[in-house]
């Protein structure tokens, strides 16, 4: 196990993980975390709309938000940064997000085995008791299945 000094810290890691690439393009930012959960913020942006003329955020960015929050929750629970891959991810959109509002993604890694991490979470726009979406996902540790990675 990692000792306290090298233990994965989502507050410190998020700025590096979201400095560029897709997560950087979205502008994801760290908000909060606990022992097995992490919360990120997806700031409002006009070019992330789901439809011309509407003011409603597309659903795609919410998937990216929840995917990244899930990764942080898993590494936080593991206490270290390890390569993982999303196997399966489901999002239920319970209501549209308020216009021009940030969306927050909170994910909890509720079960961790040697090869798999099980995650659930919500996306909300200010009140975690009134989510805009619910998420359920399974991630695999890449190390444990390097040889079987298809196309790899």
């Amino acid at each position: 196990m990692a000792d306290e000094q090298t233990r994965f810290d989502p507050a410190q890691a998020t700025p590096f993980l979201t400095a560029r690439s897709h997560n950087g393009w979205l502008g994801l930012a760290y908000r909060d975390h606990g022992e097995d959960w992490a919360e990120l913020e997806l700031p409002w942006r006009d070019d992330l709309l789901g439809e011309d003329g509407s003011e409603v955020l597309a659903s795609g960015p919410i998937i990216s938000l929840m995917d990244m929050a899930s990764g942080l929750a898993i590494w936080t629970r593991m206490g270290q940064f390890r390569a993982i891959a999303t196997l399966d991810l489901r999002v239920d959109y319970t209501r549209p997000a308020r216009t021009r509002s940030s969306v927050f993604g909170r994910a909890q890694c509720y079960r961790l085995t040697r090869s798999a991490a099980f995650v659930r979470g919500i996306a909300h726009d200010g009140d975690a008791e009134d989510p805009v979406a619910h998420m359920q996902a399974v991630f695999m540790s890449i190390d444990a299945r390097t040889v079987e990675l298809p196309g790899g």
Binding site: R20, S21, H22, N23, G24, W25, L26, A58, G60, P61, I63, S64, L65, D67, M68, A83, T86, L89
Partner: peptide
């Protein structure tokens, strides 16, 4: 491109979902 990249050299799952 960079906007759809996840870990270096791989597509981001969120971008694929989009």
């Amino acid at each position: 491109c960079d906007a759809v990249q996840g870990r270096p050299g791989a597509l981001h799952g969120g971008a694929i979902s989009g």
